[in-house]
Each structure stands twice: as C-alpha cells, then as structure tokens.
Nucleic acid binder design. Structure first.
Ligand SMILES: [Mn+2]
Ligand SMILES: [Mn+2]
Ligand SMILES: [Zn+2]
Ligand SMILES: [Zn+2]
Lengths: 137, 137
DNA sequence: AATCAAATGCAACCAACTTGCACATTCGAG
DNA sequence: CTCGAATGTGCAAGTTGGTTGCATTTGATT
C-alpha cells in the first residue's frame, strides 16, 4: 500500500525514503516550511545529511511537486503543490515571518504587460499580520 | 545646488557621499540592482567598503527611499522608490534573472482575505521573458 | 571653530547554500 | 530473484551574500 507521497513521486523518478518523508511532511504542513523546519520535523534516520535535504527539495521543485518562495530572512520556504498547481497567493506575516498559502484566494489580476514582455506566471504575496499575530497585537 | 538625491535624503538624516551616490545610481537605473551591480557602478573613492554599501542600502530602505525584492539567486535587488511610493508590480525574467519595475502597471487586485488576516500591502511579481530575452529566443 | 551623534572602515564572523567525489540504493531487465 | 547500471546519498570542503563589534572619522547644528 503506497503512500500518497509515493504515488506522487513515482511517475517522476525513484521513490527514496528521503523523498517520501520530505514530501509527506510538506503535504501535512499548514504553512510554507524552511529547510530548518523540515529538518526538525524529520526522523533522525531519514536524511541524516543537510545536503541531501537540499537536493531532495530542489528535486521536488523541479518536478513541480513543491514550490518555494523567498522569505525576508533570505531562506527559502517550501510547500507541496496541491491539485490547484500553485494557482494561489501567499500571505507573509511581517511579525512572525511565517508564510501561509491562501488556497481559497484566487485573485483576479487585471493587467496587460508592456510590449516585448512574455508572460509565464504571476505571484501575488500579501504582507500583513496573520490571525495569530493579529490577535496578539 | 543640491542634487535630487540630496533633497530626498536630507529630511531623513545625514547626506553623506555614499548615500548620495548610491541613491543617484538607483534613481538612474532602469531595473532593480543587486549589491554587486551597484558597487560596480560606484566610483572607487565613494564607499571603498562593502559593509558601508550594505548599510546605506538598508538605511535607504528603512527610510522608504528605496525598496528591495528577493531574487532567485538569494540576493536582494534594490531600486529607488519613485513618486508612486512603490505602488507598482515587478517583472522577473526567468532567463537573464533581471528584475524590472513595471511602473505603468497598476494591477487591479480583487480579493478578500480570510478572516483574521490583517492586510498591509501586496506585491505582485510576474515571471516570464523580458523584451531582450524574448527577442533572443 | 567646537561638539557629538551618527556614519564609516576594517576584520572577523555567520548562515544558507553548493560542489566534488566515493559509496550506497533503487528498480527494471533478464 | 538476482544483478548491474543509473540514480541518489553522505561527507568534507568551499562559496556567496550578508552581519557584527569596535575604533576612527565626519556632517551638520550650535
Ligand atoms: Mn503555496
Ligand atoms: Mn520596483
Ligand atoms: Zn504572524
Ligand atoms: Zn531577460
């Protein structure tokens, strides 16, 4: 009985323990996770090496099973790509630094690019206070 | 006769040579510049030290005379804040890595945040090919 | 001109990755 | 099931981009 992670990974390449567990962690996360956060969540025997985790994350992104966004602490935050194929906006809390995916928020951009530019994708990041920090303030 | 840069800086603090020249460079730039690009543009006598440039850039950002955006090479890109007060979107070329400010592009976001989130500002970054790279492809 | 908070220069430091290479694992062919 | 080539992992060392602490200099107010 293969896990959801394994089913997602197999069509793209080898399902190694590290890849399985990292993707599982990302799938179960409520917010975008930094390398350090993921590492902390991992069992000690899976992926005893930081470098492997970096490579696993890169691989997941390259296969579009995850995506990464730049935080203001110059570290990447990762999360699994759901069925929506990353068609969602992100919320960056300026107090706790956390990044949340706003799955339900499908913004209606109305814009046209200047001539010469070729569009590929758009990323909307909203700054403000997350529910927890908003409450505390 | 004070330069434009000096006039912008003075209300916020000391107009030092480094601050003047860096802001001048940013004001004259067509795209967001990395630390290294700015340093290359600077005369050798102004700001002989990397650290000072970092501090000048941070200061300009803290006074809202410049803003910075994270590139995918984990380096910040800076540009001067014009009269629009950074109410513009950015275009990130996935081929050359350059970041352009789309001053004329004032996107109409239509969204409402989930309950609990407090809005502060939004940043829209569009991915694709810039005119130069689009041509070359 | 004197003053002094604010800015700079230097040296060392740090975190977040990246690279190179030997060794281990996966998984499909036989 | 076994084997072996392709693929992934572990370790050590290196690089990049940015910080910190502290002594010295400097801008602008008096
Ligand atoms: Mn997301
Ligand atoms: Mn801009
Ligand atoms: Zn928060
Ligand atoms: Zn380009």
């Amino acid at each position: 009985m293969a896990s959801q992670a394994e089913l997602l990974i197999r069509p793209h390449g080898r399902a190694t323990p590290a890849r399985r567990r990292v993707l599982e962690v990302l799938l179960g996360a409520a917010h975008a996770m930094s390398h350090a956060e993921i590492e902390a969540e991992l069992e000690t025997d899976v992926c005893p090496d930081r470098v492997t985790l970096y490579r696993v994350l890169d691989w997941l992104v390259s296969k579009r099973l995850a995506h990464k966004i730049a935080g203001d602490d110059r570290a990447w935050r990762f999360n699994a790509v759901a069925a929506d194929g990353h068609g969602h906006a992100h919320f960056h809390c300026t107090r706790c630094g956390q990044v949340y995916c706003l799955s339900e928020l499908q913004p209606a951009f109305a814009f046209s690019l200047p001539p010469g530019y070729r569009f590929d994708s758009a990323e909307l990041t909203i700054q403000g206070l997350c529910p927890r920090c908003s409450e505390a303030a």
